[in-house]
Design a protein around this nucleic acid. Structure first.
Lengths: 187, 187
DNA sequence: TCAAACATGTAAGCCGTTACATGATTCT
DNA sequence: AGAATCATGTAACGGCTTACATGTTTGA
């Protein structure tokens, strides 16, 4: 239902092939969207049928032909309409929290929380590097377009930071409660 | 793929009907899972076929019959195995961020961000009330089971708080930049 | 020489949503 | 009288994942 519109979004910036759109999902939008190439190709076919996009075939010597897609005016209109629509409530399905809720082996739990921390820390680091490399200037010096892209990154950073400090709290609360043997003050 | 295990989790606490399991999703696990009753009934049928659960039919005067499900030893084993498995990376699909990224009408954008703030604030308030009502004591006085349930709630609270402060930053960054007319210092 | 990147697809199956369907009881 | 709660389902459709399938170029 939504992939359609996300594709319209990335195509609204510039014409791209299905392959490039898939990469865009991994790189630029990785923070808030993902799709496999099969899904993308399938959707592109449907959208072409619905006249939301058109493609021109480019013959290349050696490499396979590529279909470069771009928006039609109908596609652009559909995008505008969708952008103005309010969003429904966000569905959150979190397997990690399900396991935390249910897992009574503290050994297993420790592994899960460590893995969660590691994943969060890894993402955070990636996001911070992207921020440093592509958004070095202060926000008020950015164009509005860039500022919005930057804010999506800031969102990812804020989330990951919150996750990391939560994970520390959780570790303390679940594992460091050897209150008797550990020195409470000083030493 | 995962609903199966989440159902095993809720049934591992106590035998329940499909209807009650659905409610559990809305109430207790609402923070990190959701499913409709159709989905639940369908899954219960499959799981019964796979011998993960069994049900006993209770005839009630006036009310319709209810099927009370409980784990088999095979179901309990499957749950244990799953709990020990590492999680794959979490998929994040966030339509709100897609719109923020793409929307160049600041009027529309303002509506989206306001709605996002409102949703976050609403959830946060709900979570805080639940925390106050059901988890009034300090963490170190809770049983381990309760502590883990509490930590899932803390996770929701941390996320929502991070979202709210991000939203404030975003609003400032996108709309309050009338840097000339607004007084930068004092007043 | 082998892996990775470029480039596009088909097919099967499961997962999830939405609409439709039924029927009694309890609360307002 | 009407809405909400209890209680269980069927059917259709669409979304998404996984496996399979093909073939070239470039870089290590």
């Amino acid at each position: 239902m939504s992939l359609k519109y996300v594709i319209l979004v990335v195509l609204s910036e510039k014409p791209l092939t299905g392959y490039q759109i898939t990469k865009e999902f991994d790189l630029v939008l990785g923070n808030f969207w993902h799709a496999t190439h099969q899904q993308v190709y399938h959707e592109l076919k449907k959208m072409t049928g619905d006249k939301l996009i058109v493609f021109s075939t480019e013959h290349q010597t050696g490499k396979p032909d590529r279909k470069v897609y771009q928006l039609t005016s109908s596609g652009r209109a559909a995008l505008e309409r969708w952008l103005a629509e309010p969003n429904g409530p966000t569905a959150t399905k979190n397997l990690f929290l399900v396991k935390l809720y249910a897992c009574d082996s503290s050994e297993v739990l420790r592994r899960h929380i460590t893995a969660f921390s590691a994943e969060s820390r890894q993402s955070l680091q990636t996001y911070l590097q992207i921020a440093q490399r592509y958004y070095p200037e202060p926000a008020h010096e950015m164009t509005l377009d860039k500022r919005r892209a930057w804010l999506t990154l800031r969102y990812g950073i804020a989330q990951r930071m919150a996750q990391l400090s939560w994970a520390e709290e959780a570790e303390g609360c679940l594992f460091d409660e050897d209150g008797d043997t550990a020195a409470p003050y000083g030493r």
